[in-house]
Amino acid sequence: MTRQLPFIEAIREALREEMIHDDKVFLVGQDIRGAIYPHTKGLVDEFGPDRVVDTPISESGMYGMASGAALQGYRPVVDFMFGGFTYVTFSEATVTTGQQYFLHGSKSNMPLVITAGVGAGMRLANDHSMAIHGTFAHHPGIKVAMPSTPYDAKGMFKAAIRDNSPVVIPWHMALMMDKGEVPDEDYVVPLGKADIKREGADVTVVANSQQLKFALQVAEKLDGEISVEVFDPRSFVPFDMDLLLTSLAKTSRLVIVDEDWESGGFAATLSARVMEQGFDLLDAPVLRVTFPNMPIPGGVLEPRVMPNPERIEAAIRAVME
């Protein structure tokens, strides 16, 4: 059976069901008992304060609680509230986490999940808005995924919690109350599987989360003029290159939309990979729509510079020329 659920409620269902399914799963964060975001609402009443743990404002200690417990056989989900706050414990979350399994002889799994709200458009300024998927994707040994729909949110959070490697799975704050169909039975959306959210023939647009919504709006607007295929990577690491190349074989044009900065972002990596692996499929250079290389401004300035439907449409028109 499926119901219409808000995006954030789908995440809550995944957390709750996995905590029922496996008593090694626990949540750690700041103010998650009181549910500063509703995905942890009421969970402390059901599972108790040992499994829904609030820590002091000590990101390293909080994250360490998860990483150490993961090495001891637990499956913690560590909630940073905002993605930018992962930077406070950057060395642990990226370097020592990513290298742990490989560098120490493939002997000890570290199954933990990092989550946090992210995204531009809330007018919160840089440190509450920055994307983190590209930064984490840069560091080997960490899986990185980001759901765009309530269905994907539930299935991907479940897959992340069950994965034996560290998984970073931020969620976009602009999607929080978006509703969508969510099955009430158990299912996972495997990490590493992309999804064509709209089929098209003329151009492939890679977009995720809020930018996926914008891309779908643009595709709808251009319907009858330009046939836009909208490709949701869902996972950045591992990335479903096969499906993207299949899409490009059909459309031969590519626009990559990414709310992250232009410099060193995932869009840059993906653009290079397409050049390397799919150059012969292309009829035009790859174009990117990204955040300009400035700290994300707050207030009324943010909408002037962030990736938006107008910029996506302009890029689609440019790549079609």
Binding site: G61, G64, S67, G68, V95, Q100, L103, G105
Partner: peptide
Amino acid sequence: SFPEHKIYMFSGFIGFNFAPAVGYGYA
């Protein structure tokens, strides 16, 4: 690293072990 002896993930960052120690202790 000797996980079979519960010695884990030595890192080159001085003080690297404070944070995971919290997790070992919590577990």
